[in-house]
Computed example of a mutant assay.
Amino acid sequence: MQRHGFLGGSAALRIRVTGSVLLVAHLAFVAWYTLRPLDVPWVLPPNLEPGAGIRGDLALGWPAAARSLGGALALLAPLGFLLPMAGGRLNVSPLGSLLRTTAAGALVSLGIELLQTGVPGQVVDVDSLLLNTGGVALAHLALVPAGRARLRRRSRRAGREDVRREEPTQGRTPTIPRVGIAP
């Protein structure tokens, strides 16, 4: 039986532990990648106008725009499935899960952008925040509902097999009529 919608059993524990380890490893990589100082001869000014950087990337042409925008979408996209995987909830509202995961991704992206203000060669870009958050949401929508449905089917099948293998019960526990409770 599942308690409060969490996965139960040793397989679920392995999934949660694996998700947590992968989440920490991915966040360590993202911190290294985004917060290392860059040795550049000049630094662009911060982009605080939403969409300005995206329009500039699109003006560069197809290959450069795809590399730049795709990289921003993909940077935090693994959080879209690693956060729910580490949480281990199986029976939750799909919309609630999407909102929680997207909000967590937005906060991680905002934290990175704020930390970049103190790193030489790194500048704040509001479009990175938008694209990173969009990547988290897209990855969540693409992978989590199907994964949860698969795990629910698997747990239902395992539950039916456990019922078939169950030994016959001994019957009802007798009660004492005067007291009204079982011994």
Rank of each mutant, 00 (worst) to 15 (best):
A66F: 10
I112Y: 02
G111I: 04
G88H: 05
A65V: 05
A64H: 11
G53T: 02
S20T: 09
W42H: 14
G111S: 11
D39G: 08
S109V: 06
A77R: 00
G105M: 01
G8H: 10
S128H: 15
S97V: 00
A12G: 15
R67V: 10
G9E: 02
P63K: 05
S97W: 06
D57E: 14
S97M: 04
R36W: 07
S109Y: 03
F29Y: 14
I54D: 03
L131P: 01
R36S: 13
L110F: 14
V124D: 10
A66T: 12
L75N: 04
G19M: 03
L129E: 08
A86Q: 01
W42R: 15
V24G: 10
V30N: 03
A52E: 14
D125M: 10
L7K: 01
G88M: 06
H4T: 12
L129W: 15
S10R: 15
P120Y: 11
G105S: 07
G71M: 04
L7H: 05
R100E: 02
G70T: 02
H26M: 09
L73K: 03
A11F: 12
R100S: 08
G8I: 09
A64P: 03
L58G: 04
N91M: 12
A52S: 14
P50D: 07
A11I: 09
I15G: 04
L95A: 11
P46H: 15
G53W: 00
V126M: 10
L110G: 13
P84A: 01
N91K: 12
M85I: 01
L131W: 03
A25L: 14
D57V: 06
L44T: 13
P41V: 08
V126T: 11
A52K: 14
T102D: 05
